[in-house]
Write a protein that binds this DNA or RNA. Sequence first.
DNA 1: CATTCAAAGTTCCCTGAGGGAACCCCGAGT
DNA 2: ACTCGGGGTTCCCTCAGGGAACTTTGAATG
Lengths: 150, 150
Amino acid sequence: MQRTDFGTMACSIARTLDVMGEPWSPLILRDVWVGMNRFEQLQADLGISRKVLTERLNHLVDHGVLERRPYDRRPRYEYHLTEKGTDLIDVLMVMVRWGDTWLAGEAGPPVLYRHHACGEISSVDLRCTGCGEPMHADDVDVEAGPGAAA
Amino acid sequence: MQRTDFGTMACSIARTLDVMGEPWSPLILRDVWVGMNRFEQLQADLGISRKVLTERLNHLVDHGVLERRPYDRRPRYEYHLTEKGTDLIDVLMVMVRWGDTWLAGEAGPPVLYRHHACGEISSVDLRCTGCGEPMHADDVDVEAGPGAAA
DNA sequence: CATTCAAAGTTCCCTGAGGGAACCCCGAGT
DNA sequence: ACTCGGGGTTCCCTCAGGGAACTTTGAATG
């Protein structure tokens, strides 16, 4: 994404951005998530330059978010989410909710999510891992943690 | 963020990225969230170029995520989250959880969040708005919505 | 009144990243 | 032997980010 190196900052947001914050990376993850696993598919769907797509895929593989799997005797590869990558989709799901809420307008959400557990069309909400109550920006106080900068 | 215009894509992720996906924008939102509201504070804390900081702040204000408030008779301004912007912090909170889980390493999380409702140090989890059960990447099926591309 | 000061930008140049198109490599099929 | 198609690589060009210097505004100070 950046000249400035976000990966070394003492901030989990900056570090996460270092992995998936470059332009196109979130959209690549979205496509892989919904089953577009091959270079040509991704390139055609996104309209991204082949050079940049190569760079992004390598970056995501290097960071353990995607894995590269051969699918043919010829040198052909598919990209799949690792566990680390699947976990990262949480960020995208929250972006979807925000975009649906604030940007979709009259037309409504472009895509819907049906939850396996209840079978309904739904969206995500943020809850406290401990008590299960809603947990949003105004529901927390920020404190220094063990990995804080010296 | 990009040459390519993400804002017109029929995808809430792309549209959200159009608002806050440019380099530095999430970190600016983080700083404003935790109370760094002024230009000089942001510039000093982030080490961002003044030119880019100006561009990002204008972009975020234009999209209704931040608002610009005078705080002096002189031309001095503070930036504050709007309701739309506060809601966007959800995305950052999920980034924090992912970074804490996968990138923090031995040192542990750099920052901790204490939840007002229960008083405990905690983190966020994604739940279905409807049934309250966990809702992650593998728990949903994707379907076309009303705002899908023609 | 003239000078200083600090916040909040603006302007300039330089470098490097993204876009686009052309090219390359490799194994399979015919 | 020749073609085909997926998965890249290479090249050039433009534009965005980094960095530093400069400007503007009104208040405070001597």
